[in-house]
Design a protein around this nucleic acid. Structure first.
Lengths: 343, 343
DNA sequence: TTGTATGCGTTATCAA
DNA sequence: TTGATAACGCATACAA
């Protein structure tokens, strides 16, 4: 009953229970082909010997790894400061754990790296399915995956980017509507946005939606692109506040930048929300901890991770998966947004 | 040269190059036993056929998975708000990638879960080595690993907790010295600490060091334990500020709580740093983005991850690893700490 | 230098 | 209901 030092195989179990290895295999896998008596006996002996299936042997025999592949882009600062990836991993991990799957993680330094990891996984069968994140417009990885339909893949991206691949889609456009409408209702007619890097697919989607929605409502709109760092957020804020008339509200693409912007406003004697309203895209403890608390677009990323995991398991089982919507964004109104100042 | 739909094995390569499978194996693995001519030929053919080794077969044959195991405790909020884990993963991933290893991640809901994951990994040989994090005092996992010396393991913890296991050790006591000394030099003689959960091993270590250092210096010291959330940090701050005389400086165990504390101070008309100095343990963009910027104990967690990975690879190679020190903490002085107020 | 044969630990097929 | 036996794909000891 104690942990065994030496590997114990089904042959050991077979010998100890006086049956053949195939009988053991059937018994342990709950398959028909053995009497209840032997099954019970085998299970008993297996437990006593502390038998567990060898992962590699199992994988080889059934061409299944029980692993899901996830590639992280190497940007420690961004990964650390954006709650997104860790939240997603939490959801993925929690769901996979229930189904006895693991997450296989690799890190890519650039997009070529990522391509070769994908090729590697396809060729070596080291994962049963993989997740595709951070798609860009016309991303070449889409083609790669379409050429290798034997490898299930789930894209997490706006459906317009995934060319028919199984997709967990977020409705960023709807979120843009929520945010702009909130400010519009408060009387704001000149809104600025401090966005992330222009080349990211989701930046593009949001850009388009912002332009459209503000145009519809007759709201002045201006957008500055940054690298997501607080320094860049602070700098963009300074620039926006220096023009005349300056916007009455700023929406930041992440919470560190919103926090940095709030700081710049305070330093310049600009009161939040009396003189300037501030919003953040993607909510976290940071928005709650800030003072004043930052109104933010909140979404359940952990739940997205769970859904993504379950969709990949479906794909592995050969089920069809089309475009599934993520849990929607919800507006968390805090103290950083208020009525537009009269000018 | 295009990607192959069907699995191509070394036998296919052997047939196509007119040699035996063993010659192919030798050639592809750069081992002696084949002429340069055949080696070149085989490599050429393998490339043409798009051959890559099957992971499971390779693992089975050489009892090596090229995977390192990492168990995450399921606490999405904590994981998301603490840059620690994601930074560590970044470092691990970057280093492992260079050595062609992957990270196998599983999520545990509680400590029993974690034990059974460890048992599973030991029995199924699904990883070549594993990382042990968040050790508690007298943690039972230490015994488990000692009973199974065939599974290399690296503990990341204070060396006093790891009972001689290979350890990547942080010098939290030294960091406590840095922090307290900084405040002491600024004239502070009454310092409070808003700590994390009492049951965490590193909380315990820090508790002891704080008590010792402050006693030595003759500094008043008070400690409140929380659950790491901004709400708890805010609450603790309120309590600390309500006593008379209140501490002139507060050190928070993470940055969200420091941020929340800064907010409470602002709301109560307590000026930072004129009336109250604030420090954070563990630095992140948040401390930089805050206003005023928060003085923090900074350490290179990504580098720790790299070191941890390389130590595990050494262990896998059978090398001895004792206690290795992490990169030291460095004090990042920002605007939130200043001379103690005169009273 | 080359090819044959066997082991790695399962699963699955096919007679008995 | 059983028990040999053949995959699975690669590595390698051994024979040629």
């Amino acid at each position: 009953m104690a942990a065994q030092k030496t590997k114990v195989t089904i042959f050991d179990v077979a010998k100890a229970s006086g049956v053949s290895s195939s009988a053991v295999s059937y018994a342990l896998n709950g398959k028909p082909g053995v009497s209840e008596a032997t099954r019970a006996k085998v299970l008993q002996v297996a437990r006593e010997l502390g038998w567990k299936p060898n992962g590699a042997a199992q994988s080889l025999a059934q061409s299944k790894t029980r692993r899901i592949g996830l590639i992280l882009g190497y940007d420690p600062q961004l990964l650390a400061v954006e709650p997104y990836m860790m939240s997603l991993i939490s959801g993925l991990g929690a769901e996979l754990e229930e189904k006895d799957y693991s997450l296989l993680v690799r890190m890519s330094m650039d997009s070529d790296d990522e391509d070769s990891i994908i090729e590697d996984w396809i060729a070596t069968s080291n994962v049963d399915a993989m997740l595709l994140l951070n798609l860009e417009i016309g991303d070449p990885r889409i083609e790669m995956m379409k050429e290798n339909p034997q490898m299930p893949v789930l894209a997490v991206a706006d459906a317009s980017l995934t060319a028919g691949l199984p997709t967990l889609a977020s409705d960023d456009a709807a979120a843009v509507g929520l945010a702009v409408r909130h400010l519009y209702d408060l009387g704001h007619r000149s809104i600025a946005r401090v966005a992330g890097p222009e080349e990211l697919g989701h930046s593009y989607i949001r850009d388009a939606a912002f332009s459209e929605v503000t145009a519809e409502l007759g709201v002045r709109y201006r957008c500055l692109h940054t690298d997501y760092t607080p320094a860049a957020g602070a700098d963009a804020t300074k620039r926006l506040l220096s023009v005349n008339p300056s916007p009455t509200a700023i929406i930041y693409d992440n919470d560190v930048m919103a926090l940095a912007g709030e700081g710049i406003a305070a330093m310049n004697g600009v009161r939040v929300p009396e003189d300037l309203s501030i919003m953040s895209w993607d909510d976290s403890f940071m928005c709650e901890a800030a003072h004043p608390g930052i109104t933010a677009l909140n979404r359940d990323i952990v739940e997205s991770g769970r859904i993504a995991a379950s969709l990949m398991l479906k794909l592995i089982d050969g089920e069809e998966v089309g475009v599934v919507e993520e849990p929607p964004y919800v507006l968390r109104v805090r103290e950083s947004t208020g009525p537009a100042p009269q000018r």
